[in-house]
Structures are given as structure tokens and as C-alpha cells.
Amino acid sequence: MITVIKQGLHDTVQDLGRYGYQRFGVVAGGAMDPFSHRVTNMLVGNEEAVATLELTLVGPHLLFEEDALITIGGGDLTPMVADEPVPMWKPVLIRKGSELRFGAARAGCRAYLAVAGGFDIPEVLGSRSTYVKAGLGGLDGRALRKEDILRFNSSSRLAEVMKGKLVSGLPLRAADWQITPKLLPNLSGHYEILVMRGMQYELFDEESRHHFWNESFTVSSQSDRMGYRINGPTLRLRESIEMVSEAVTYGSIQVPADGNPIILAADRQTTGGYPKVGQISSVDFAKLAQAKAGDQLSFKEVTIEESQRLFIKQEMDLRVLRAAIRNRLR
């Protein structure tokens, strides 16, 4: 069990999303950075869809009321126990009575905290993801607050073996291995993001299309789990059109009449009526999720074939990683 001593900026319970209800207007939601969510789960012996905590920019202070095997991944929000930094991307045993304190973001924007067994929270419409606007899922449909209590489900056999290996008198004990850095995104503050042409790409004028691929855009402070507003050259249609609302998805880059693009993210609405200039490759959701206000984005064109090839390659890499972790945890 964890008690929240101090809340962060926006700490929510997330899993891989609420699918099957978008036809009723229910947003899919889920972890903004599904890669980090999945890998942190793997590292504590969980199934990948188990709920984690998504922590944004400034993380919380959490008191562990029992021993827990955890992994922190994603953005670096400077996690500490006592005066010791907590290493990321590896299993760590936190002892009962220790306080895990996150600070400000050193790199990236969103950290994921996975606990062996996952959080004991009821599913709403098939998911534990928090959707704050409709008060759905997570802990009472809202972000964490001071004095909230999060209980754990029982952890897997693998996690128990790992815990046994890490036991010592210290408040914190990390595994002596970690996953290869080459699998992890480079959190530089300037992200090159792979983008496919959007459904209405051809309707933009030539100059706008040129700018889109060749200029960089700055992430606005008006960015959240629903979408990122980005500032750069304005994008114009060749002629205005009256669009009929149609489905949108994570990574759809919409351009409203003012010409400033909005990149739709995890908590996007299900349908939209603005022309879409581009569509971010699934493999690069992780980069987008780690971009924060002021960071630079540039877009590199890929075909759907290439985008799907890269996705499948990443799935293969994750399969290999999963097997390697199982061997390590054993």
C-alpha cells in the first residue's frame, strides 16, 4: 500500500486504454507513453496492460507502507528515496516505511511507476485508465491527491523471486542489471517525429506542406493529455472546405482555421471535423509523450508501409526484451 504524502502536478492511474466504447463517444485514453508503460510493467513481472501511475512534470511524494518491487521508466522526474537517487528502467525493492519523492523533470515529461501486481483499482468500461473530464476510471476518476491510498494486487511468482533476491536492510535496493539504453528514447528536448500524410494532406497548399516537413514547431504550454498545441508556421488549405466529422486517433495532427496544428493525444475526443495534415507513427507516441512546453518537434515523412514495419519491429524487440527479463527475474 502507498499513501500519497504530497501530490504531483498531474498523477493519474493509466493502463493501455479503454477500447470498445469509442462508438459511444467514450475516449480511449490510456498511457500517453505506451512504450514506457509496457516496459516498466515487464520489469516488475506484470502483464503489460496492468495499470501504472503516470506522473507529469513534477511528481508526487509517496510513502510505502509495505515492501514493494517497483520500476520507474519514461521521463526522468528525479526520483529519490532518502538521499539516494532511484535508478530507472530496472526493478527496485523499496522497503516498508520508505518515502519515494519525485522532483522536477530533468529530462522528458512523463514518468511511469509500475508496482509488482499493479494497483487494486476497479475497472470501469473495461479499463483502469483515468479520464478526468468525465470522472471515469482510476482513483474516483481524478488525479491523485494528498492522503490518497493505493493498494496493490498480489504480485506474480516472478516478482516474488526477484524480491527475494533483492532483500537487504537498506531502504532501497536495485537490481544489478538494466535494459539496454539503445531501446530507450533519447530525451533531448528536440524530437524528430515520424509522420504519415494525413487524411486531408493534399488539401493543404504547397507552401504549408513544405513548411510542415521542413520547419520545426514549438510545443505550447496549452498541451495536455487531450492534445498538444504546437507553434510554428501556420498551415493553410488551398481553399476552405466544409468537413464532415469523422474518426480521429492518437497522433492525428489537426489544423483548425487559425492554421496552428493540434496533435491529438491519449485523451482525444473520438471524432473531429478539422482537416488532418499528418498522422504520427505509433512507434513515436513515446517521443511525443515526453515532449513538454518549449520543446521542439520536427516531422519526418514515412509511408504507412514503413510505419507499420517499424511498429512490428518494435513489437519483436519487446518480445525479446520480455524473454530476457523473464530470464533475469528467474
Binding site: G20, Y21, V244, E246, E315
Partner: peptide, 27 residues
């Protein structure tokens, strides 16, 4: 098929890309 989203003039089908690993491009 993960799910579908009907709209005025379109139906969008969301699919499990991992199920289409093979010779042809998944799309």
C-alpha cells in the same frame, strides 16, 4: 478488430496491427 467508430459518412475500423505480421503490408 479492436473496435470501430461510425460517423456521418465513414466507419473507421481500429485493428490489432500485431495480428498482421506476414508477407503483405498489413494495411
Amino acid at each position: 478488430m479492436v473496435e470501430y467508430i461510425p460517423a456521418y459518412t465513414t466507419v473507421t475500423v481500429i485493428y490489432e496491427l500485431g495480428e498482421f505480421i506476414g508477407k503483405h503490408p498489413p494495411f
